[in-house]
Write a protein that binds this DNA or RNA. Structure first.
Length: 590
DNA sequence: TTCCAGACTTGTATTAACTGGG
DNA sequence: CCCAGTTAATACAAGTCTGGAA
């Protein structure tokens, strides 16, 4: 596999000679082995550093801000922050109390003392003129001539070519995010206590650069300095800074198509495949543990059962008041589940209702084994709604246990494993050998959908959903009319031929027959598309496709059924999964 | 043992680019 | 060619998990 991986990557990236000679090149295989044993991620790393957000350009004087109905000229720094708010005026955020409160507090910090004494009430602030101005600007951008647009495109391309790539070991690699996040207002998801706070501008003095000693170091913009330049080849990032909202570190890293990401991705699926080999044993064990004398072990076993059966996330503890109140398995609280000894015609039903990652609601009612149900009743005894369901458990305890069951096993491996195995099994079940290509792709999407449902990857139905369905239906109706017309013509042509039996009319029949066939095919395609879209209304396929499904399953499926890979993966996805596209043959088994 | 910084993956929202029919 | 409607790409927030210090 290592050899294969290397081969793929070498094929994928052309090697200019100077790159190859710039490192002390040993054979590829040796170099791979080395890297894997001492934990270092690279031996040579050279890049140009990040691209900073453009400096603030003050507004024209004609664009006014009003306080208490009177125009007011703001200082540059107060004005900049005001524009952040103005740009979001149409967004629901700006109506939320917490957002407004946080914004106003941070905005005042940027004001001069005079401004501070005048502007004391956000409700008296009128940003509408600023907002209109920005809207007009973006409108103007859309209306730009072809040449102007082309010029911008070229400038972006130049920036990409200069800053968007780095050299890591023998390869020129695409960088994922080479632009530093511009200042703005923090948009937390869900009920976030910090929404609206000012995300400050990042300067070169905030940036730590990581590159190899023997590389040409990136230069900070004239008159500035980096915070630090370090040479740490135990990590993969090229630059980092600390963000001021949560105090967390942000990184500049490589694109998913890079060797370093691809290899890690591949490794992730190999771990999941190892779980496949021992999952029966693990399941037997946790079922046994439901009977344990120790509460701690019972909780661990029930939690693991949920993670395995429902593909729940681990659920780390979070600092209260710092983030939105969301939970995963280990952090479930009493208030998040309801027990029904009998519900409709089912026994021992558990109802889950909680906010998970990104405050996406998880709602599910499932019947469980009697023993699980009894355990849950036990866990709930003498507890308040806001108490932890698993009070003797956390992710660290759980993962330590998993580590003992299998090397490299953690809670999230179950999500990967169950997602991939579900795809493989669904594909087997749903693919009909005689189906057309579009019909087979519908089957693929349905298999993908089963996984997305398992992982709770929902989406809000697109705003234009109804309309777009109607459009599609109209197309179908029209196609149907075309078809009946074509059929009539075919019939007429046949009659004609029967009467005359001449060559010309024989040909005409053939032509009409082909036409009918073509239209039938088009109609079928449209109908499949409509079905697919309807079924996909509230389901997002992207996340599972990108993060949970072993790409080799999809590649093998495509090869087996003669489906062009482009029908399943777009360009970016093909780049990310280049390793799998080369590695898997039609018989690959997850 | 707990805490927390750090590194990396996973996730949705937003924006940019593309595309096919009028 | 234009434009609406999609789809792809980007942005960045929010998770998971590790390891080392307190």
């Amino acid at each position: 596999y290592f050899l294969m991986f290397l081969k793929i990557l070498q094929r994928g990236w052309p090697h200019p000679k100077q790159i190859l000679t710039s490192t002390q090149s040993t054979s590829g295989f040796l170099w791979e082995e080395e890297r894997y044993t001492d934990g270092s991620k690279w031996r040579f790393l050279e890049h140009k550093g990040p691209v900073f957000a453009p400096p603030y350009e003050p507004l024209l004087d004609k664009v006014k801000f009003y306080y208490d109905g009177k125009p007011m000229k703001l200082s540059a720094s107060a004005e900049e922050v005001a524009t952040f708010f103005a740009k979001m005026l149409d967004h629901e955020y700006t109506t939320k109390d917490i957002f407004r409160k946080n914004f106003f507090k941070d905005w005042r910090k940027e004001m001069t003392s005079e401004e501070k004494s005048t502007i004391t009430d956000l409700n008296k602030c009128d940003f509408r003129e600023m907002s209109e101005y920005f809207k007009a600007q973006s409108e103007a951008r859309k209306q730009m001539s072809k040449e102007e647009k082309q010029k911008i495109k070229e400038e972006n391309e130049r920036l990409l070519q200069e800053y968007g790539f780095c050299i890591m070991d023998n390869h020129k690699e695409r960088i994922g995010n080479f632009r530093i996040e511009p200042p703005g207002l923090f948009r937390g998801r869900g009920d976030h206590p910090k929404m609206g706070m000012l995300k400050r501008r990042i300067r070169p003095e905030d940036i730590i650069i990581n590159c190899s000693k023997d590389s040409k170091h990136p230069r900070p913009p004239p008159g500035t300095k980096w915070k630090e330049v370090r040479h740490d080849n135990k990590v993969t990032w090229l630059a980092s800074w600390t963000e001021n909202i949560q105090g967390s570190i942000k990184y500049i890293m490589l694109n998913p198509s890079s060797r370093i990401k691809g290899e890690k991705d591949w490794q992730k699926y190999e771990t999941a495949r190892r779980l496949k080999k021992c999952v029966d044993r693990i399941r037997t064990q946790y079922r046994e543990d439901w009977k344990s004398k120790e509460m701690r072990i019972r909780q661990r076993a029930v939690a693991l059962y949920f993670i395995d059966k429902l593909a729940l996330r681990a659920g780390n503890e979070k600092e209260e008041g710092e983030t939105a109140d969301t939970v995963g398995c280990c952090s479930l609280r009493v208030e998040h589940i309801k027990l029904y000894p009998k519900l409709d015609d089912q026994e021992y039903v558990v109802e889950f209702d909680f906010l998970g990652k990104d405050s996406i609601r998880y709602y599910n009612k499932i019947p469980v084994e009697k023993r699980v149900f009894k355990n849950l009743q036990l866990f709930l005894e003498n507890k308040q709604a806001e108490d932890d369901l698993f009070d003797r458990l956390n992710t660290s305890i759980l993962n330590k246990h998993l580590q003992e069951l299998m090397d490299g096993l953690t809670a999230k491996v179950f999500r990967t494993y169950n997602a991939s195995i579900t795809l493989q099994q669904q594909l087997k079940e749903l693919t009909c050998p005689d189906d057309s290509i579009p019909a087979k792709i519908l089957s693929y999407n349905r298999a993908n959908r089963a996984v997305a449902i398992l992982c709770n990857h929902q989406r809000a139905p697109p705003k234009t959903f109804e309309k777009s369905m109607q459009n599609l239906q109209n197309k179908i109706d029209e196609k149907q009319n075309q078809l009946s017309a074509a059929r009539k013509q075919l019939k007429a042509a046949k009659a004609d031929y029967k009467a005359s039996h001449d060559d010309k009319s024989k040909k005409a029949v053939e032509v009409k027959r082909k036409a009918v066939q073509r239209i039938e095919e088009q109609l079928m395609k449209l109908q499949v598309q409509a079905t697919d879209r309807e079924e996909n209304k509230q389901i997002a396929l992207g996340t599972s496709k990108l993060n949970y499904l072993d790409p080799r399953i999809s590649v093998a499926w495509c090869k087996k059924w003669g489906i062009p890979i482009e029908k399943i993966y777009n360009k970016t996805q093909r780049e990310k999964f280049a390793w799998a596209i080369d590695m898997a043959d039609k018989d690959y088994e997850f």
